[in-house]
């Protein structure tokens, strides 16, 4: 393969995985060696799943349509040759067996490692949210973790203030603590009105150095179901650096892709520059 072809292949595979190709571009890709490489698309799919907010369940009428289609394609009478023929039709690329086998062993090892790491990480998460009765040592609640971080030196800390002086959110108070080094933090809030999860949700945003004010980092969505003070772990989707402000907005259920920032519930501006994490 020439360097020019390699460059073209990389460009087309990247664009295919991120923004799609025109028909002409798909044809150009199809004739290149390595065009059947699914790895870019798999990586993009994994990235999307990592940040994808579950939508509603598959509508019943749509499910029926899909099941009806399946009857035409999934049959005990289908021979392998027919399946192979169908595979070649959609989608445009198909990875030959040999190209999969070449890295299957390494992928299997990595996936095994990933499962191990994942289980470890999930274990930590699950302990924090649903402490098992026999867990030792006793896991900390978000409130305890918040208090512990607040007591640590080098944390970024800010106080929540209402976005409006009047109205149902005028009594919002609390604080937020964040660690650049640990990439974790907690929001402590009181005075936020209860919300109907079917009608709206609260969404946290982190204004920081990496992404700039125009594209604050999402810190997760949450709902308020009772009066009193709540402590919520921050779930930053991207690495946050030196936050200057945190904000809570009211959005539609599940959060939004594009926030119009029409209803800002609270703001927490970082007033002082703190030393880096120890």
């Amino acid at each position: 393969m020439t360097e020019k072809d390699r460059e073209l292949l990389l460009d087309l595979l990247t664009r295919q995985a991120t923004e799609g190709l025109t028909s002409e571009e798909s044809r150009r890709l199809a004739v290149l060696e390595g065009s059947d490489d699914d790895s870019f698309d798999l990586a993009a799919a994994a990235l999307m799943m990592a940040e994808l907010e579950p939508a509603d369940a598959l509508p019943a009428h749509l499910r029926s349509r899909i099941a009806a289609d399946a009857a035409d394609f999934v049959s005990t009478n289908v021979e392998s040759s027919q399946i192979e023929k169908a595979v070649g039709e959609i989608p445009p690329r198909r990875t030959p067996l040999l190209s999969w086998l070449g890295w299957a062993v390494a992928a299997a090892a990595l996936i095994a490692l990933g499962i191990n790491i994942s289980m470890t990480r999930f274990g930590v998460t699950e302990i924090a949210r649903n402490p098992p009765p026999t867990a030792t040592p006793t896991p900390m609640t978000p409130a305890q973790s918040h208090d512990e971080m607040m007591a640590e030196p080098g944390m970024t800390v800010a106080k929540w203030t209402p976005a409006a002086k009047d109205g149902e959110m005028a009594k919002v108070a609390g604080d937020v603590v964040w660690s650049d080094k640990q990439q974790k933090g907690y929001v402590k809030l009181s005075g936020l009105p209860k919300n109907d999860p079917n009608a709206s949700t609260y969404q946290l945003w982190i204004f920081e150095e990496n992404q700039g004010d125009k594209t604050p980092i999402d810190g997760g969505t949450f709902n308020i179901s009772s009066d009193g003070t709540v402590v919520i772990p921050i779930e930053a989707k991207l690495a946050a650096k030196n936050p200057s402000m945190f904000a809570v907005t009211v959005e539609r259920p599940g959060g939004v892709v594009v926030s119009k920032r029409e209803k800002v519930a609270a703001l927490a501006k970082v007033e002082t520059s703190r030393p880096p994490d120890a």
Binding site: L42, A43, A45, A46, L47, M49, A50, E51, L52, E53, P54, I111, G114, I115, I117, S118, R121, F122, Q183, Q203, L204, W205, Q211, K214, T215, P216, I217, D218, G219, G220, T221, F222, E235, A236, K237, L238, A239, E251, G254, G255, V256, V257, V258, S259, K260, R261
Partner: peptide, 29 residues
């Protein structure tokens, strides 16, 4: 007015895909 992607508190899809969780970690690097 594009802002960053909303987060999920249940991570439904991360839990069904090892790659999704690893991708999220890789993204942060």
């Amino acid at each position: 007015e594009m802002v960053s992607e909303p987060g999920s508190t249940d991570h439904k899809f991360i839990q069904i895909s090892v790659e999704a969780k690893e991708a999220a970690e890789a993204m942060k690097t």
